Amino acid sequence: MAGILDGRVAVVTGAGRGLGREHALELARHGAKVVVNDLGTTLDGAGVSVGPAQEVVDIIRGEGGEAVANGADIADFVQAGDLIRQAISTFGQLDILVNNAGFVRDRMLVNAAEDEWDAVIRVHLKGHFAPLRHAGAYWRTEAKEGRQRIARVVNTSSGAGLQGSVGQAAYSAAKGGIASLTLVAAQELGRYGVFVNAIAPSARTRMTQGPFADAMAAPEDGFDRMDPANVSPVVAWLASADCSVTGRVLEVEGGRICLEEGWRHGPARELERRWSAAEVGDAVRALAAEGAPSEAVYGA
């Protein structure tokens, strides 16, 4: 499938390390020109360095591809706009946005500090909204001027956001919000030729080296299910013109792709009048018994 992204221009956020690095390299190997964004922070969001992004650019160029580095803070609305404009001014267009950047500050809920909550929500949730907002505005303008692009967005949710994860209240809330943002963006941007999907990846990265270190360890032999490079071919297809789905969330781990099925209307009771508090208990207990059982929260 080499060349499925020939002639396409991509922005990948958080692409200096881990999953984002592998995404940027995979997109470039399929022919995309890539803007490699990374703020170069530590795992908990401290410090700034363009070094990691430039290293990925150097690899892409060394393999014969085209790429430029970007050190924008994608949760800063102005800098996010500059990132999108850099792609357009450098390569003449924008076709792909892969929102991947993030960090963790894990705490049990009763120990979480306000600034930790704010930082995680900001980088993950606002860090998806801001680039998507600017890219979406560009694609809308292109469509209105008769240059509708075959645009693709790949967001990054998580099993923590879909099933929950003990000790990760802020991260889970942000990642759940990203899944919902994906559904809304898919509906709103579809008229402009934009398909929007999300992945929920499981892979060995800096963010999984803490509480999940044992589960994420590389096997002594055989297929390494936790290699982050396993996820990137899925991203490459979702970024391609061949992608024919939108508004979906795919869990990806090793060689497994699972379509996530989120909130749905389940069993119901209707009285055709207002409920009394005394009646609610029996009704809700019956509904809970009829409905599908909840999946276990990670770490429970």
Rank of each mutant, 00 (worst) to 15 (best):
N99S: 13
A75D: 06
A143L: 07
G161N: 06
R61T: 14
G190K: 10
F91Y: 13
D76F: 00
Y192P: 02
K175N: 10
G136I: 04
D115L: 06
F103Q: 07
Q86K: 14
V56E: 02
L183V: 11
A53S: 07
T141C: 07
S180R: 10
H134A: 13
H124M: 08
N70Q: 02
V56H: 01
G164C: 08
R105V: 11
R133S: 13
W139A: 03
K144P: 00
A75K: 00
L109I: 15
Q163C: 11
A119D: 12
A151N: 08
A151C: 10
Q93S: 15
L83F: 06
L83E: 00
Y138C: 09
A113M: 11
V50R: 04
L125S: 06
V56C: 06
M108K: 14
R122W: 01
F77A: 09
N100D: 12
R140L: 05
R122A: 10
S157I: 05
A113S: 12
R191I: 10
L183Y: 14
Y138P: 02
K126I: 07
R85P: 02
A137M: 13
A186P: 01
Q148K: 14
D73L: 02
G161Y: 04
Q79A: 04
L83P: 00
D82C: 05
L83T: 01
A169V: 13
Y171I: 09
G102W: 00
A185D: 10
G81V: 06
N99T: 09
A112P: 01
E116C: 09
L125V: 12
R107W: 08
G102T: 03
E55L: 11
G92T: 07
V104I: 15
Q187S: 12
Q93R: 15
G190L: 09
